[in-house]
Amino acid sequence: MRGCVIHGADDLRIEELPEPVPGPGEAVVSVRYGGVCGSDLHYWRHGGVGDFLLHEPMVLGHEIVGTVHSYGPGTDGPAVGTPVAVHPATPCGRCAECLDGRAQVCRDTRYLGSAARTPHVQGGFASRVAAPAGQLRALPDNLPLRRAALAEPLSVALHAVRRAGSVQGKHVLVTGAGPIGCLVVAALRAAGASAVTVTDLLPRALEFAAAAGATTLVRADDPADPGWPDEVDVAVEASGSAAGLDTCLRAVRRGGVVVQLGMLPPGMSPFAGNLVVSREIELRGALRFATEFDEAIGFLARESLFDGLVSAVVPVGRAVEAFALAGDRGRSCKVLLDFGV
């Protein structure tokens, strides 16, 4: 059984792993596709994501879909062979945040392929993966596995839009047209945004944003680009850069909302805090998601436009090549690893 194991910066290995044995309450899923996420790329390039640093080898991956392989003793769920997506989070259910309905910021959560705690939570980039049976979601008959692999990142996008409040009839700016930024665009249009302006440095990334429903595309490095709005009602920062946050703060109207979705570099970041004060801007963070996973699956089943955001499917044996491609946004949007070949 093959898996993608990160040992440190620039040290991704395809290794033989032991077959998972499901315990009570667990299921084993035969993984077909795994989406390479920005956090996976950070572990590969830098040995960590933000303040979460690798301290031991870890199987990467949290965007996985496949079919039910088996169950542990006394456990049931979707029938063996059923196509499923795997919700990657297991919140504790006991902390103040969970009890307040904010499980996405649970202080003791377990998230597939995360170094936020030690021992690390091993991820889903393996031929077969054991997970709590309650995290399995049977897929609608009309949702192919390849498109369903977007369920986790789309959930992140839906949560970010929810954090912004109502966007019905509003003009929204999105900085960063990576996979998450493009999914935010689709989520915004579905939520009724009247206009979505997207900025990025790369023409190819902006093309993907247009496919997702952006109404205006702007080169982030061109202050003379005629697409720059005078002001917007809401801004979503999806690039994970201090420059992107600065753009959002300067573009949003007085009393507007900025949602910081991209994970900024570790440590201190420059921050135009005076604008937050003088314009009474509401700056809100958005981390992962909670209840949006099922919503995302339904959305994917209804909309085939998401197929265009999957730019490549690469066999797991060429995982390093897949990661390099995923990290080159001039050539790709969402890259999937194929564990079925």
Results as ranks from 00 to 15, higher is better:
V5D: 01
H7P: 02
R13W: 02
P22C: 10
A27I: 04
V28R: 02
R32W: 04
G38N: 05
G38K: 05
S39Q: 08
L41S: 13
Y43N: 11
G48W: 13
D51Q: 14
D51T: 08
L54S: 07
P57V: 06
M58T: 08
L60S: 06
V65S: 02
H69V: 00
D76R: 14
V80C: 03
P83R: 10
P88G: 12
P88T: 10
G93M: 09
A96C: 06
A96T: 12
C98T: 11
D100T: 05
G101D: 06
V105E: 04
D108Y: 15
A130F: 05
A131F: 06
L136A: 08
D141H: 12
N142E: 14
L143M: 03
P144Q: 06
A149V: 11
A151M: 03
L154E: 03
H171E: 15
L173D: 03
A177T: 06
P179Y: 09
G181T: 03
C182F: 09
C182R: 03
C182L: 06
A187P: 00
L188H: 07
L188K: 07
S194Q: 13
T197R: 03
T199P: 09
L206S: 06
E207S: 14
E207Y: 04
G213H: 13
P226Q: 09
D230W: 06
E231N: 13
E231G: 09
A238G: 12
G244I: 13
L245E: 02
C248T: 10
R253N: 10
G255D: 10
V257Y: 04
L261S: 05
G262E: 03
G273Q: 03
R288Q: 13
A296G: 12
L305T: 10
S311V: 02
P315R: 04
R318L: 10
V320Q: 14
A322Q: 13
A324P: 00
R329M: 08
R331K: 15
L336S: 09
D338N: 12
